[in-house]
């Protein structure tokens, strides 16, 4: 399982990376915004995308839309991990085709729950 973690703060990427490693996912890569993430997704064979929303350059919601619009990437499971907490934004992300939404600050338990749920659905 190859996972791409996208967040503009290196500390947050590191936290997510460590939590994912605890869950048994050791093959992770990092990008600091959508602009750098998209080419990585297009050229690498990633199985899962974890992205923040608010980033300079290309935001997470735009990255999600770009992924869904890409013929080869459109089925990629996407989990949004973000501080954005407005109801409208969550609805916007759902409409754009997000597979899970975690609001910061979050716990390891919540992250695990959402990832399990996404893969249950993808594999089921």
């Amino acid at each position: 399982m190859k996972i791409l973690i996208v967040d503009d703060f290196s500390t947050m990427r590191r936290i997510i990376k460590n939590l994912l490693r605890d869950l048994g996912f050791t093959n992770t890569s990092e990008a600091d915004d959508g602009t750098t993430a998209l080419p990585m997704l297009q050229s690498g064979s990633f199985d899962f995308l974890v992205t923040d929303w608010n980033m300079p350059g290309m935001t997470g919601i735009d990255l999600l839309r770009a992924v869904r619009a890409d013929e080869r990437l459109k089925h990629l499971p996407v989990l949004m991990v973000t501080a954005e907490a407005k109801r409208d934004q969550i609805i916007e992300a759902a409409q754009a085709g997000v597979n899970g939404y975690v609001v910061k600050p979050f716990t390891a338990q919540v992250l695990k729950e959402k990832i399990d749920k996404i893969f249950e659905r993808v594999n089921g």
């Binding site: 109801r87 916007e92 609001v103």
Partner: peptide, 25 residues
């Protein structure tokens, strides 16, 4: 631009248009 993102909400518990935690989401 709403899609630019706003960052953390400070008074989440006092606002109707904002979720107050993961359970709300």
């Amino acid at each position: 631009e709403p899609s630019r993102g706003e960052g953390p909400q400070i008074h989440a518990d006092k606002r109707e248009d904002v979720v107050s935690g993961q359970d709300d989401v």
